[in-house]
Design a binder for these strands. Sequence first.
DNA 1: TTATAAATGTTATATTATTACATAACGTTA
DNA 2: TAACGTTATGTAATAATATAACATTTATAA
Lengths: 132, 132
Amino acid sequence: MQKEQNLSKNQKIIFDLIDKSGGPMKAYSILFNVQKKGIKAPLQVYRALDKLVEIGKIHKIESRNAFIACQNSSCQVSKATAFSICESCENVSEISNLKLSKYLSNFSDNSGMKYNKYNLEFFGLCKKCKSK
Amino acid sequence: MQKEQNLSKNQKIIFDLIDKSGGPMKAYSILFNVQKKGIKAPLQVYRALDKLVEIGKIHKIESRNAFIACQNSSCQVSKATAFSICESCENVSEISNLKLSKYLSNFSDNSGMKYNKYNLEFFGLCKKCKSK
DNA sequence: TTATAAATGTTATATTATTACATAACGTTA
DNA sequence: TAACGTTATGTAATAATATAACATTTATAA
Ligand SMILES: [Zn+2]
Ligand SMILES: [Zn+2]
Ligand SMILES: [Zn+2]
Ligand SMILES: [Zn+2]
């Protein structure tokens, strides 16, 4: 949370909303929720989201076109992200597993490619949904 | 390629196009390319894509909203996918690394969640783009 | 055959994201 | 402070991606 004071007005409004929601939010749902605060256009939302992603305050859940607050304090830049997604209730949480992140950050193959970023999304059923 | 004969007409047209392209293709670019073959509406494309993804003939590159033919013959169902993406030239290739796929397929944590599917996207610079 | 599922065709619409252009606020340093 | 470059904002229009709803046809198989 150390960077919060650096956020601009719109960035702060939008980050606070996502953070408080506790889960992933979609851009137009964010827009709807911040209209009372004067943010009226999609572009204002997307610009703030872009910046927040860039500095690692939020991450994009690519398979859901949604944005979630970083739940991992060590994750200042979004270079190594992993999520678990329940395909039933759509609950999403960020995985912070040191072994996993080390394994993936050090991954290399014979393609000659230098990897400097990854995003991993696991899918399944959460505890609750499994027991239904 | 053993399932190709099972594909319907539209599915086959669209799979062949993606497969021949050798890289990821976007839905509306596919649509444009198959209009001469009588596929005129987005929904016709998306339905074929959905089916092809379901049976593992193609995969969706989530971060790019694009679809690529499976380059891994063992990958009949899209339950464990990994890609490398060049952020400069947008070249994409499917990673088939047994160690990686075993590691991820067996991954579990203390969340109580049962993972039955994952998608991993690595980003970086390919050989060509690195040397520029 | 008959019924069941799978695929297709068509129109309209919903959702997600960007372009283009103008203005304002902020931070740095001369 | 003044001037400059950078970052953020405001606004309108539009592009790109994806789905809903409904009618019809084709394939599969009991
Ligand atoms: Zn994070
Ligand atoms: Zn669940
Ligand atoms: Zn594959
Ligand atoms: Zn490249």
